[in-house]
Design a protein around this nucleic acid. Structure first.
Lengths: 252, 252
DNA sequence: GTATGTGAAATTGTTCACAGCA
DNA sequence: TGCTGTGAACAATTTCACATAC
């Protein structure tokens, strides 16, 4: 599926700017659903169907897709393969992105497995740690290198994104090292706010944060609350958050 | 505005309902920052300071806090300990919430470590798997039990939240088992949309999704984001040139 | 003087509903 | 006929700015 067309990789050929963060956050979900359809040999989907698979309303789906040069055919629907290709290109994963992970502990190793999974547009090209005991061992098919060498490895392997899987106490240092190495995209699992230059993007995932939000929703309307509608509060895909996940599953 | 949202007669206890999802999503971040301040013996913070620590604007912070019975003192700021207590109570983590993890693989084991960390309001009370090879082993200080026993364990240990850390192919089955066991809050790391009853809340975190969003933001930055030829734009769209330029994501 | 809490405005995002094309 | 794409209505959220309280 990757099969990057031998074309210029410098710029996506579509109006990139001005696409709202919530939209960007939902696109990966559409892409995932499309890939499932494609693997089942389904040629086209209607906005209604695709939206249903992703847990959003069809109107949202259509408007979201209108931001990128949509490939729908009125009266027919969207060509799965074409739309998937469009979204991949839009997101910039039409070519494989090389990623690295700082932290070869349990979490880092686990993430390495996921990151190594092909067909999602990413490939693991570096794992870093400061612990001499793990340096040199293989994680996710890659030899663990000292964090001190991150600059060299990032350059040599052309790593573009770094996942931070170290304890909170070393997260900022890890981020600094990654930024210093030239990386412009960071995804952190450490429960601290990272300070980075404005040109660097950071996505943050924190187990405790997610659980606390979950705790809120399970207590608000679990025990005895039934104040009408509140249950329908769909957690908007946070820009950043957001994560494109809905809190409450609602079927209507 | 017509207050369509039922602020409802909230529970006498204390929390006021109808709090927007974006607000709920930011509260854990405030709590985290407050805990850091508390550990440094800082007695009070201004909205300006706290907001700065969390990567949000002070106006947002103040309005967010206004949703719960705020504890600020004009001219002074917020009492760290009091505010932290208020947020904990609001989120429902003023008492320890018991969680369980389905999937004792690498990811599940890694998460078990995080989940076991005290002071965040959670305690691991169950780990489940279907693989006979890991059942009985200890993960995160808990003996791994068969998924088939989840109902019994959830009841016995009074587990309230379940983290799903299994492959995509078994995620729905895991969710079904958890729901059947009476759990009303799920956090899933599997890249699939889970179908659950409306009274169950689901939070979803997917590495590939996050990386794809990150990929987008790291490639959009191109200095010359030239929206191609105007002809490509179907409806002479209002190219709101000028982007928010928010490369830096703030956490959710 | 300082910093909160909050109307009101501005902005951003979602839903409706239908014109128009395949 | 069926379904997309989108103007317009609507709703939610953020930001401003200031009265208010300490």
């Amino acid at each position: 599926m990757v099969d990057t067309v031998p074309r210029s990789a410098s710029r996506p050929g579509m109006p990139a700017r001005a696409v709202p963060a919530p939209v960007v956050g939902r696109l990966p979900g559409y892409l995932q659903a499309l890939e499932a359809l494609i693997s089942e040999r389904v040629p086209t989907v209607s906005s209604e169907e695709l939206a249903g698979m992703c847990g959003v309303r069809s109107a949202i789906l259509r408007r979201d897709l209108s931001h990128l040069e949509s490939a729908g055919r009125r009266g027919v629907g969207y060509d799965c393969a074409a739309l998937a290709a469009t979204i991949r290109e839009f997101l910039g994963v039409d070519r494989t992105r090389r990623i690295g992970i700082i932290g070869a502990g349990r979490l880092g190793s686990a993430l390495a497995d996921y990151a190594g999974i092909p067909d999602r547009g990413f490939a693991l090209h570096g794992v870093f740690d400061i612990d001499p005991a793990v340096i040199g061992t293989t994680v996710g098919g890659v030899a663990v290198a000292p964090v001190a060498e991150i600059h060299r490895v990032v350059a040599a392997e052309r790593i573009e994104l770094i996942v931070i899987a170290v304890p909170a106490s070393s997260a900022q240092a890890a981020a600094d090292a990654a930024v210093d190495a030239g990386v412009r995209g960071l995804m952190s699992f450490a429960p601290v706010v990272l300070t980075v230059p404005s040109e660097v993007s950071v996505r943050h995932v924190d187990l405790a944060t997610e659980l606390q939000v979950l705790a809120y929703y399970t207590s608000v309307e679990s025990p005895d609350t039934r104040p009408a509608a509140p249950g329908t509060d769909p957690a908007g895909a946070r820009t950043d958050t957001d994560a494109p996940a809905d809190t409450t599953e609602q079927q209507q």
